[in-house]
Amino acid sequence: MLAAAAIEDVAAWQRLIDGYAPLFDPLADGAAVGLAARFFADAGGARRAAAMPSTPPLPMLVWRKRGGRMVVQAGAYRGLDGLGVDLVFLAGDGALAAVLARAEHPLGEMKRQLRAARIQFFVLRTKRELADLGYEDFVEALGLPFLGACR
């Protein structure tokens, strides 16, 4: 399945996110995570997308903490600048579908996809800002190196 198609299934992502409510409890209201197709950002795509504001918006999924709940909504990807999210995941074809298809612990699948770089991620906030927004558990759950790779 193309990444863009998997991104459009808002209801499926909401169900997935609801299954992890405790993970998002520490997040401050307004904290937001974006998911877009990697194609748009890959190999210069971040620049391409930033330079093409006139093209139709590309699909993006936004998970935003609102009223104590992580709410999934459709958004628009216009490059990595000014996305209004704190972290963004850019998924290759099939990666998000694999996450959605996993009945038990789908975020475990997301972690695997991240480790295999089939999903990339970028942080758009500083370490301190992320910590203040309550991201530590989420970042840890996905195995994202928070302080440095130390490898």
């Binding site: 971040a46 620049r47 990595l80 991620f121 970028f122 942080v123 500083t126 440095g148």
Partner: peptide, 13 residues
């Protein structure tokens, strides 16, 4: 050389 955001939050925008 280009604006490519960080993957490690330890580093600066």
């Amino acid at each position: 050389p280009s604006v490519v955001p960080q993957t490690l939050p330890h580093f600066r925008p």
